[in-house]
Amino acid sequence: MTEKERLLAQIEEKYGIPIAIPDGVDEEAAVKALTKMAGDEGEAAGSRPEPEDAKILQYLEGKQPPEEAARTEEALEREYAGIRATIYRIRLAAPTNEDVRRIIFGLAGEPSHLLKKSEKELIVIASAADIRTAEDLKERAVELADTLAADAMIGAVISVDTSINKMQELRKINAQAELAVIIGTRINPGETVYVYNELGTGKMLYRLTQEEKEEFLTDTLGSFRFAGLDQEMQMTIRTFFDADLSVTETARRLYIHRNTLIYRIDKLYKLTGLDIRRFNDAVAARLAFMVELLMGD
């Protein structure tokens, strides 16, 4: 029995999942990855020690002294040599369990690390070798969330940034993925996946101080606040912005007559003095809408 076969059998016994190695994968890389999954202590033949997950978590959070951080980064660089990587930040609706772990390892590809920040917050460093575009990455995140829901029966909200090929960027994409869910859940609650690069001006507006936000709202809207509108009006405004200020497209998406939509837009104008059919007013209204959602930090 080869080392690879031994490790495959060990993993199947440990997780209850048969693992197959695709054709063409480098033998040494496969043994390294399988050794980690099997939880074998010490070095596998021909490999160097992998960074422990606890150290990686400290590294991501900037809690390691510089020399140790450099060693952790170097170890990750060796592990992911030539392979693009990405981070999935996962917020679970219930405490994590072994099912979650198995599902993540079943989908994340190799090499991967599952770091437990808390009982309900996980950070997954995964291979992005077969992820070519931002849309691919988002799709993977959605698949992961849906599969966790269906198989582990745990709700999950996942946030991502992008994929990288240099480990020194890992901390940055981790921080940005974390920010994606913080901002995203304010601006657009109820989504399953948040992508940092889709936040648009939300990223900039989030960084304003409370005073700056309040000043902007007062200057733009006076005493009016969007929160005082009913949900139908709020949905109308959101949809109008998403439809690039097209009355026809907005009416179509909302399944209303265009006259009804125009009536609502006129109503907003009377309340705010902003005609969102006009570009400058639309910009002001959209920014104010988002600033209002981001208040309260």
Binding site: I17, A20, I21, G106, L107, V142, A145, D146, T147
Partner: peptide, 8 residues
């Protein structure tokens, strides 16, 4: 978007 486990 229910993923199938690719190696199973």
């Amino acid at each position: 978007n229910y993923a199938l486990y690719p190696h199973m």
